[in-house]
Design a protein around this nucleic acid. Structure first.
Lengths: 382, 382
DNA sequence: ATGAAAGCGCTAACAG
DNA sequence: CTGTTAGCGCTTTCAT
């Protein structure tokens, strides 16, 4: 293993100089010639920095912990990690990911590991948007909650804007001329069910349509079975459109419909939620739905962690703060510039993708990330 | 930040003694009393080991790199990570996960990061089972390929036993009395399409059923559309059962069937592949299918990395080597014991779950992991 | 502009 | 049985 000392020696300079050259430290004024000489020596010898030593000396690890209760469980979580990773990377940090499967014991072990590794913060994320019992052990560490929040609001949190999403979904139907719109909702009081219902009501109200409770079909779960079962009830209401709590529910609804010889969107328009691609993109006809801003949840989570707030960060790179319900329809485009990176040699690749995120930054409560509308073919004008 | 020195001081011993006590080093013979005294001092002060310093001193990081081209993309990859993580953990190691989204540039950066971190090995995994161009940079590092393999076989690899899986799927149908079994396959020559076809033929041949090429419907892709489209062709063959290349294909097939007023399994029996739960578990009727051994791929990958071979590892903990095609039907149960862990204080939680993996260990070619059969309701006896 | 040297927190000989 | 001490590889004053 070749060390900085070797490089210094080979380049005929001291280790100190070598160090400065390698990391091209701006505050060390070294002539370009020397820099190059060191660089070349390093390349020639195949030198590679030792992050352990570096971390020890600098007192920072450039590591960020990411605890998930289920990357595994869900087609969902993956994108969150992607977002988190990209943002971390952009700041010269790297993610230490642990999937605990929700196991408390594992969670604690995970903390232990991370703290020993001297992570600079930890993002605690949930598979499903929910309130969590903020695990003790988190206190004392720079923390952010992703796709979840704690009751006391002790930790900054970033979650999807369920209300805005429900509103967008309903608006889609309203804008297509529907007035009698059913809503198959889950009965458990989750952020999703409460929020989406609220959004549904807001949209109706905005459109001057009276809220009719009998149009809301409550199902215990929100899965295929529910949608399947709810179909009769929905059709009985005489609704011309239905907002399904999620894509899985919509899938079941499609099933039931087909068995009765009914068709989407001719007999009824449908909009889902979650944009679970395997389902929504491949149903017949493809399902118009509202997506979860997974990537952005991860991204904003890490950003919040790194800036210790988030609000400042939003403005700093073009992401616009909005009222929390213009959801996706017109979220601002944002180009990620090449932000300066600590330790230029380890700078991340430029992120070419243009991603968007409409974020509401309230001083109270979790940070809301807008849910984008995904237009497909399950709505017909009336 | 409290250091070992502080603890030593508080306990009235030297740092060396404190170190031994904390890590209860077996080869240091320290009276229990002293150990306890140190431990208590540590607890009292809230001491936490510094893995950076420790790693630097010991010359090992206890870090393993895991590069994925898509945790994000796929509901699949998650379980692989889980398996990898659990196995790593069991050995006192922790995973450094990077999702490159398949981007070459990012891949290289990922290597860089990992090598700087002095990972003890890297698992390079693909979202879909395929041959990969082993990225340069891997040479020189302890490596294992997961769910992929390189042409030259330079690296140890662990992949699902597609042949065995195809065979199991077909057998299921055969055992139910079917003789005319169609196979909707993807036409691209992927490990999945050639392997599953091979397995299909093997099963037929074993059952003394002649192979009839006209029963194999080739579709460009293997998605919902394909299944949907293939339905007519399948029914035209007069088959009483069909083996779909994957669950998505089966989903499309179901769709088409229903539109024609046909029913599963009365009009035709169906078996899928992949066990993509969102789909298979929730179709009507639920789809019998063959699963991908995702968790075990990850697990075996890391094990192979750690033991530098895999063969030895298999025998060492009860996993049986088999001929490579008894696939899942009767894979042995295995209980993960609490293997001894370097640095007892960081030992992983006991893994209570009983997982199984039938593995073929050939000296040539990738290590094969069996694909388990998942029985549901889409097959009827004939 | 560059070098010498003092750590960073811990481990592992080596002494006693 | 326990303490002393020399590193691990790098960063960062402080001199020069």
């Amino acid at each position: 293993m070749v060390t900085l000392q070797d490089v210094a020696h080979a380049a005929g300079v001291s280790v100190a100089t070598a160090s400065w050259a390698i990391n091209d430290d701006p505050k060390a004024r070294i002539p370009q010639a020397t820099r190059d000489r060191v660089r070349r020596a390093a390349d020639r010898l195949g030198y590679r920095r030792n992050a352990l030593a570096r971390g020890l000396a600098r007192g920072r690890s450039d590591l960020i912990g990411f605890i998930s209760d289920g990357v595994a469980t869900s087609p969902f979580a993956g994108q969150v990690i992607r977002g988190a990773q990209d943002e971390a990377w952009k700041n010269g940090k790297i993610l230490l990911v642990v999937d605990t499967g929700g196991d408390r014991r594992m969670e604690e072990k995970a903390f232990e590991f991370m703290l020993e590794r001297r992570v600079e913060g930890v993002a605690y994320s949930s598979w499903v948007h929910r309130r969590v019992e903020a695990p003790r052990g988190l206190s004392g560490v720079n923390t952010v909650l992703v796709n979840c929040y704690d009751r006391e609001g002790r930790f900054p949190a970033v979650v999807p804007d369920e209300v805005g999403g429900g509103r967008s979904a309903t608006r889609l139907l309203l804008q297509a001329g529907h007035r009698r719109i059913a809503f198959i909702n889950a009965s458990a009081r989750t952020p999703a069910s409460v929020g989406r219902l609220k959004g549904y009501r807001q949209a109706l109200s905005e459109a001057g349509v009276a809220y009719d409770p009998s149009l809301v079909i409550r199902e215990k779960e929100a899965d295929q079975e529910s949608g399947y079962r709810a179909m009769r009830a929905v059709m009985a209401t005489g609704a011309t459109a239905v907002f399904c709590h999620n894509d899985r529910t919509a899938m079941g609804f499609y099933d039931a419909l087909r068995e009765h010889g009914l068709r989407v969107p001719d007999d009824i328009s449908v909009v889902g939620f979650d944009n679970q691609e395997v389902i929504s993109a491949h149903l017949h006809p493809a399902l118009t739905t509202v997506g979860l801003p997974q990537y952005d949840l991860g991204r904003m989570g890490i950003r919040t962690l790194l800036t210790g707030g988030g609000a400042a960060a939003d403005l700093s790179d073009g992401t616009r703060a909005c009222s929390g319900s213009q959801a996706g329809a017109d979220s601002p485009s944002e180009r990620d510039g090449d932000s300066p990176v600590p330790g230029a040699a380890t700078g991340p690749p430029a992120e070419p993708a243009v991603r968007s995120a409409a974020v509401r930054t309230g001083s109270h409560g979790p940070q809301l990330v807008a849910c984008p509308v995904v237009l497909r073919d399950s709505i017909s004008r009336v």
